[in-house]
Amino acid sequence: MAETSTTLKHYFVSSAQQFDAAKMGMWLFLVTEVLLFSGMFVAYAVYRVWYPEVFELSSELLDWRLGALNTLVLLASSFTVALSVHFIQRNEKEKVVVLLLLTLLCALAFMVVKYFEYTGKWSHGIFPGAGFAPHGDYAAYYTPYAPQFFSIYFVMTGIHGIHVLVGMGVIAWIVTRAIRGHFSAAYYTPIELTGLYWHLVDIIWIFLFPLLYLI
């Protein structure tokens, strides 16, 4: 791996061509990701238009403070990952490692908050789909079509969460490679591409947060 990744693959003419190709491939991949989520956004929009009151009422159950906290955490992580790209271009490799580790930490924080949110919901009987049975103080939220809201909530944040987990895996791998000194100002494609992916995960959350928690 180490040898081939820093050298030019035989079917490319130049490393500029190789880099361009990789970057374009990543952008296209991100487009497909956006479209994957757009399907869910459409489902959300349709049901919101049909049952606006239910959606307003149900979204009260989501704690906007936790959502806001997660937004901040993700924004911070986007920032650190952007900085890491900046510093690798200047060959400051130690900073890159630190920044990537910080990113990883933010991602972890995000998942921890999500864990508390999910388990909190479950403890009140708020499950996706047929399991939806809020009890105690929350029984009043058992309105028709409230299950749809929470199904959409769990599906969207769940799939987003899976993306965060995958991102964490990739960042962890990048960190180990950075520690072993695989990257330099001359070759940092994986960092750049991971950064692009991570920004996308961030942007999707920036749409999810107001749609689900606020309005």
């Binding site: 994957l36 989520f37 489902a43 049901y47 789909g129 047929a130 959409i152 599906v155």
Partner: peptide, 21 residues
């Protein structure tokens, strides 16, 4: 293709959890 992907995911969840979409 991503749209059939998410459609299949939603159909899958409909079967599995009855998400009611």
């Amino acid at each position: 293709t991503p749209v059939i992907g998410i459609t299949m995911v939603l159909l899958f969840l409909e079967r599995l959890l009855q998400i009611g979409i």
